[in-house]
Write a protein that binds this DNA or RNA. Structure first.
Length: 429
RNA sequence: GGCGACGUGGCCGAGUGGUUAGGCAGAGGCCUGCAAAGCCUCGUACAGCGGUUCGAAUCCGCUCGUCGCCUCCA
């Protein structure tokens, strides 16, 4: 199993399963509003990856954090940020549950990790990697020799936009922030009342649930700098070897519609699943390699739906389909090679056209799409209409047959004729 | 300005030196009472310019373009 690592830019080979468990830490959303479809990409991709690693025999612990204390939450819900965070966390769980991929093993909240966060900051202060200043605590960037290595940023090029006199150096970043007016959540600390900075939350949560060293750290490409760069600086300075592989998924781009994040009218996960269904949404993510950007638009979603339909139709198509040997290894090879889902999709289409339904189903199952090829029995009244249509056809009463077909379609079902005066009934999509 | 990702046939999208990727859309045909589904046939692409090589979409350089990040957006 090989995966592209952001730090080195190269493929890293995972050890065999017998060598120990695989810890995966993936950055989840800041919960302040309904999550948009772009937020779903890391959830989906890393859920698939965890699933695949388990299939391959690995003992996986998948940790997916929820950032529930943050400026954005204070801004979104002045005076009742905790309540908003609680609500938005539930929205996120509801929305991602709808994909049917299950939940990560651990979904830690920043607000439930305060003691560990404070402890980690104390350790950094004690070792000279951080310093207190008027109730804030800042990380001393110059104290960490390989700052910038993950993102390729040169420390001398990182500049602050607004000067902050409490910092020793403009590149330093906050580990702890003193409570400010208008912030309705705060915790006691050795530096007074305040709340954690964003980056330290993840360093603490990862260590708490996976230990000081683990295999995979994932998240969106937009988090490489500063978030992950800073996490790395904090954790390594604290003596944690931290992640061995950094995986960053490509961003989802909103195109073809008048949507932009700044305007705030981007499609939510909820909207997309309501409009297109979870299966089409999953197939959409499957079409692009996880590292590449992907465009979200009516056109690309329609194309994904067409592909999903082609797999659905396999369940009712009549094929010979032999019993191929060693075909499954093609899926294994594609996924073991940097988790190449588009390559798998090509293999699945090939099997589909050859009628290898059990192989296709087995492949789709990895991605939570096994339902595409499963039969959905029609209700009795629909079956009865379809049988009457069959009888009408047999008597060449085509007007009646067409009328019944229209009636069946109006009820949300579709009849397809197959040789031998038979038919099959499936839901319309 | 700095750093990073990317640029493949109408569209989406694999492919890290030499073999047909695959899908969607479209055209023609078969099947069908008519459809639907399915099946058959049809596309020789790799931003541009140089270079390396017997040979490059694939390696190197430059140019152009798109996108992301640059202190709290997955």
């Amino acid at each position: 199993m090989r995966l592209t690592d952001t730090l080195t830019g190269e493929l890293v080979e995972l050890p065999p399963p017998k060598d120990g468990p695989i810890g995966m830490y993936v950055c989840g959303p800041t919960v302040y509003q309904r999550a948009h479809i772009g937020n779903a990409r890391p959830y989906v991709v890393f859920s698939w990856l965890a699933n695949w690693l388990r299939y391959r025999g690995y003992d996986v612990t998948y940790v997916h954090n929820i950032t529930d204390v943050n400026d954005k939450i204070y801004e979104a819900a002045p005076g009742h940020s905790a309540e908003r965070a609680r609500d938005a966390t539930q929205w996120y769980l509801d929305d991602t549950d709808a994909f049917g991929l299950g939940r990560p093993d651990v979904l830690p909240l920043a607000t439930e990790t305060i003691p560990e966060i404070v402890g980690l900051i104390e350790q950094l202060v004690a070792s000279g990697h951080a310093y207190e200043s008027e109730g804030d605590v800042y990380y001393r960037v110059t104290s960490f020799h390989s700052y910038g290595k993950l993102s390729g940023q040169r420390p001398d090029q990182v500049e602050e936009q607004e000067p902050n006199p409490r910092k020793e150096d403009s590149r330093d970043f906050a580990l702890w922030k003193a409570n400010k007016p208008g912030e309705d959540t705060s915790w006691e600390s050795p530096w007074g009342l305040g709340r954690p900075g964003w980056h330290i939350e993840c360093s603490a949560m990862a260590a708490k649930h996976l230990g000081p060293e683990f295999w995979i750290h994932g998240g969106g490409m937009d988090l490489v700098f500063p978030h992950h760069e800073n996490e790395r600086a904090q954790s390594l300075a604290a003596g944690h070897p931290y992640a061995k592989v950094w995986m960053h998924n490509g961003l989802l781009r909103f195109t073809g519609e008048k949507m932009s994040k700044s305007v705030g009218n981007v499609a939510s996960i909820q909207d997309v699943i309501a409009e297109w269904g979870a299966e089409t949404a999953l197939l959409f993510f499957l079409t692009a390699h996880w590292r590449k950007p992907i465009d979200f638009s009516p056109e690309t979603m329609a194309a994904a739906k067409a592909q999903a339909d082609s797999f659905r139709n396999l369940s009712v198509s009549i094929k010979a389909g032999g019993t191929p040997l060693n075909e499954w290894s093609r899926v294994e090879e594609a996924l073991d090679d940097d988790f190449n889902t588009p390559a798998v999709l090509a293999v699945l289409h090939e099997w589909r056209s050859r009628g290898h339904i059990s192989l296709v189903t087995k492949g789709l199952d990895i991605f939570g799409l096994g339902s595409l090829t499963s039969e959905k029995p029609a209700p009795h009244e629909i079956v009865e209409l379809a049988d009457r249509r069959l009888a009408a056809r047999a008597q060449h009463d085509f007007a009646e047959a067409d009328r019944l077909r229209t009636e069946i379609e109006a009820a949300g079902w579709e009849v397809r004729d197959i040789p031998g005066a038979q038919h099959q009934i499936l839901p319309r999509t």
